[in-house]
Simulated assay, not measured.
Amino acid sequence: MTQTPVEDRLLKAIIPHVPFDGWSEAAYRAAIAESEVSDTVARALYPRGAVDLALAYHRRGDSAMIARINETDLSAMRFRDRIAFAVRARLEAVDDKELVRRGMTLFSLPNHAPDGARAVWGTVDAIWTALGDSSDDVNWYTKRATLSAVYSATVLYWLGDQSADNHATWEFLDRRIDNVMQIEKLKAQARDNPVLSKLMAGPNMVLSRLRAPKPPSGFPGRWRPEDTDN
């Protein structure tokens, strides 16, 4: 998602404060003062203050990841390596691990946990979409749920990784993807088993009716802060 100049100014202004104050109201107030954006405009853009700015920072990382995927020739890679590349690209888009660590602290709070879960889901959805996933059934959900688990575990490992160039994290990521590939292999074997196929006929019939959500349409345009003086 492309940010407007005003949004970018606020985000840049809060980043130096986050390692010390977290994604907090104090950091948000400092960002408003230093960016010289009026409080009215800032609140219109980010009604919940630092929480919304933390989510904007996360989306900026997603955009950087997508750009890197799109500019890289992945044709020679196995698909599991493309996924690993995408997750690595997402983590390498982070300016400072402390920004993510503070974000995880924020989104571990019960009132903000749904926002954190949606942010992770948005990241893995962006990965699958950028890699050309065209599934429109239950696989749309299972692919994203599985990658959400892999991505979340890798982020936690990465935050504590002190190895050179995060080498240990990339090995950890490869192992997690290998685990998923083994599960997929077992699922394929189960589908080919006539006994298990009969037992799963009912559940599979229900699951076959699931469809990927459609993007919203028909909504009015958004307010553009660049049309104001501040």
Rank of each mutant, 00 (worst) to 15 (best):
55 L>H: 01
229 D>G: 02
173 L>C: 05
174 D>Q: 11
210 L>A: 14
131 L>V: 09
225 P>I: 00
98 E>R: 15
223 W>S: 09
180 V>N: 02
153 A>T: 08
203 P>F: 12
53 L>S: 04
156 L>N: 13
126 A>F: 08
22 G>K: 07
116 G>I: 11
55 L>Y: 00
108 S>W: 11
132 G>N: 10
40 T>C: 00
123 T>V: 14
153 A>D: 11
149 A>T: 12
100 V>T: 14
112 H>M: 07
82 R>A: 07
166 N>V: 02
205 M>T: 14
73 D>C: 06
104 M>D: 06
215 P>Q: 12
81 D>T: 00
95 D>K: 13
216 P>M: 14
122 G>F: 04
176 R>V: 00
205 M>L: 14
104 M>F: 12
83 I>Q: 03
69 I>D: 02
187 K>S: 05
149 A>P: 01
204 N>W: 08
41 V>A: 05
228 T>S: 09
194 P>Y: 12
89 A>K: 02
79 F>L: 03
102 R>C: 11
104 M>T: 09
207 L>F: 15
8 D>C: 01
62 D>V: 15
93 A>E: 06
20 F>P: 00
26 A>L: 14
72 T>L: 06
213 P>N: 11
59 R>M: 11
36 E>M: 04
52 D>T: 08
60 R>S: 13
188 A>Q: 13
104 M>Y: 10
120 V>A: 08
228 T>E: 10
100 V>K: 07
213 P>D: 13
121 W>R: 11
59 R>Y: 08
46 Y>E: 01
125 D>F: 10
224 R>H: 09
106 L>P: 04
143 K>Y: 12
192 D>N: 14
166 N>L: 05
200 M>N: 09
52 D>K: 04
226 E>R: 00
15 I>H: 02
77 M>H: 05
45 L>D: 04
184 E>V: 07
117 A>I: 14
6 V>K: 00
141 Y>W: 15
155 V>N: 09
164 A>V: 14
110 P>C: 09
190 A>W: 11
222 R>G: 05
127 I>F: 01
68 R>C: 05
28 Y>A: 13
221 G>R: 11
146 T>P: 00
82 R>W: 03
